[in-house]
Simulated scan of single mutants.
Amino acid sequence: MHPILRNILAVIAGIVTGSIVNMGLIQVSGSIIPPPDGADVTTTEGLKAAMHLFEPKHFIFPFLAHALGTFAGAFVAAIVAATHKLRLALAVGVFFLAGGIASVFMLPSPTWYTIVDLTAAYLPMAWLAGKLVTRKSRSARQANLA
């Protein structure tokens, strides 16, 4: 397969994987940390109306969904990529960061959460995933040379 085509597919696979992980964590979050009484979390309008009822514990799973979804997507992109593994992992991180920024405008959240989410959940996780894969790839190449 041509490296450019493989890299495009790597980014697409990363975005799909990250989205699946993100949504999976969001889906189970309510059964682990129930939403506040009276909060309708099934619609954006319901979330906006109930946001004042949310406590810090209610932001754990959204953060984990963003961070682990980005990590998983970036990891897959870096593994599948033919070249530029770290750059493509970061591209997936930028994609999810753009989604996080859009989410801030669509669904206002406390300032502390917005800062933590946008600074720690996306680019750092993508960088970490990319570094893990590139370090692993480098170690494998060195082992093959020995």
Rank of each mutant, 00 (worst) to 15 (best):
L47A: 01
G100I: 00
T114D: 12
T17Q: 08
N7T: 02
T43V: 02
A121I: 07
F63I: 10
M23D: 01
A146M: 12
G100Y: 01
A146Q: 11
G69R: 05
L132H: 14
R138T: 14
A129N: 03
I33Y: 02
R6L: 09
I15P: 00
L118C: 11
I20F: 14
V80K: 08
A102C: 05
I60P: 12
G93M: 07
A82K: 04
P110F: 12
R135M: 13
V92Q: 07
A74D: 11
F59W: 15
A39K: 13
I60Q: 10
A98N: 06
I26V: 12
W112C: 09
N22Y: 15
A91R: 00
P36T: 03
S29V: 02
R135E: 14
A102S: 06
F75N: 05
V28C: 05
M1W: 11
L25R: 03
F63V: 12
P108W: 09
G24N: 12
I32P: 06
L53M: 12
I115M: 14
T70Q: 03
V94N: 01
V80R: 00
A13K: 00
V116A: 14
L90F: 14
F54A: 01
A78C: 02
P56N: 11
T44L: 14
P3N: 08
V76E: 13
A120I: 02
